[in-house]
Design a protein around this nucleic acid. Sequence first.
DNA 1: TAAATAGTGTCTCTTAGACAATATTAT
DNA 2: ATAATATTGTCTAAGAGACACTATTTA
Lengths: 249, 249
Amino acid sequence: MTRASSDEQQFLAKYDVSQYERPSVTVDMVIFTVKDNDLKVLLVQRRDHPFKDSWAIPGGFVGTSESLEAAARRELEEETGVQEVYMEQLYTFGDPDRDPRTRVITVAYFALVEARQVRPLRAGSDAKAAGWFSMYDLPKLAFDHHDILDYALTRLRYKLEYTNVAFQLLPELFTLTELQRVYEIVFNRSLDKRNFRKKLNIRELEHSLDPDKVYMLEETGEFKMEGSHRPARLHRFIDRVDRIVRGFI
Amino acid sequence: MTRASSDEQQFLAKYDVSQYERPSVTVDMVIFTVKDNDLKVLLVQRRDHPFKDSWAIPGGFVGTSESLEAAARRELEEETGVQEVYMEQLYTFGDPDRDPRTRVITVAYFALVEARQVRPLRAGSDAKAAGWFSMYDLPKLAFDHHDILDYALTRLRYKLEYTNVAFQLLPELFTLTELQRVYEIVFNRSLDKRNFRKKLNIRELEHSLDPDKVYMLEETGEFKMEGSHRPARLHRFIDRVDRIVRGFI
DNA sequence: TAAATAGTGTCTCTTAGACAATATTAT
DNA sequence: ATAATATTGTCTAAGAGACACTATTTA
């Protein structure tokens, strides 16, 4: 940052902030979880017009001195009670008529949360209800929220293909079969168990060559004893990296 | 879109558009070209505060009833005179203090233009000068524009790796050596000629399996006769697709 | 014929995907 | 022993990367 000259200070003092018409700016949150053997997204039912009673992804206005990411995390926390989860900017939707009230530009984010960390959903000041909906069986949505969800699902699949973020959808300890189920649910097709595990190993090696980039899968030595069958090894992901905040690239 | 009920119409009539403080929204354009054996970006020198006299990427406010993409194309056309070039949304930068005047959220786009299609650069209403700068030797930039360019270069490299957009940086007819030079310049390292061409063939096949996805490389039968050496075959890309407008995923 | 650039093929290593048998636990 | 799920390896095909020689043109 260059130091402000007195010339510049003079300019800034005179600057007329109401010189241009301004759109409203919101953040909208696509919050995914895997639950009941299904990929779910959090929707709220609108209490007010426009699209009163329609379901929509949660969102809200960006505070005057609040960063976009902070606004997104605030919304996420309001809806789910969770913090510190994986979140990234998705895309900015700004068609002039996407909101019938006035010009609203929305910066969409998507987040991955573990179902069990989420507190029970509740209505809010502008939502008469909230709930988890299957991505494969959505109701009609308000605004352009179908577009946003389409885009989010594509991004989610893409992310799962070349990163290890999947563990963000699982509890800390999980079996490889549970991890595979996450992939199967997100990609909506079954996978071969041996190939899946082989690929995990390959990723493992790749990643250990670049420890700044991703997460490492680790055996805990513990087992999941459940059901009348052979117990499964429990694994965990080790964080080797500062959380990747910025969107995909 | 649901039909507006009279209840809803009543609501919309009363809706107070000045209810929330609003940030300004701009689009900023990262305009890349390959020229003089170098990757160049278009910069303008600011006529006014803040950052008076600093170089910056061109941008401007989004019109009240103008889509983000339209605003980006308008800026692009103003600066370069070109239209119908490859452009995609990059990322939205919204730190509260990124602009000392007031809250300004900017939606960054990046575009690829062919150097010879660009009309000579000229100053503008808010720029005392404009010019092409090497991405590998940038001046100090205004605002957070270094961040935006870093991000744009990463995205550009990524795009070149898995798509055929590189031809957007070339004239309609080009030799394979010229195409390879584009890759070498963007990735800033030399490539093996045989492997490069082999990969082009593989991409070709992939793409013909999915003709809705990308472009096809085609031999024209013409040759570039230039210099005292064997002439090179001229190629072109055939558009097999509606332009991909949305950002990468 | 010399200089300059164009054009081309093989080998090895790694990865992706198809595919089935054995191991361990509770009942 | 049976039911249920966990765990493991091989084969083939395709792609990535290293590597060097011949072809064609003009001066």
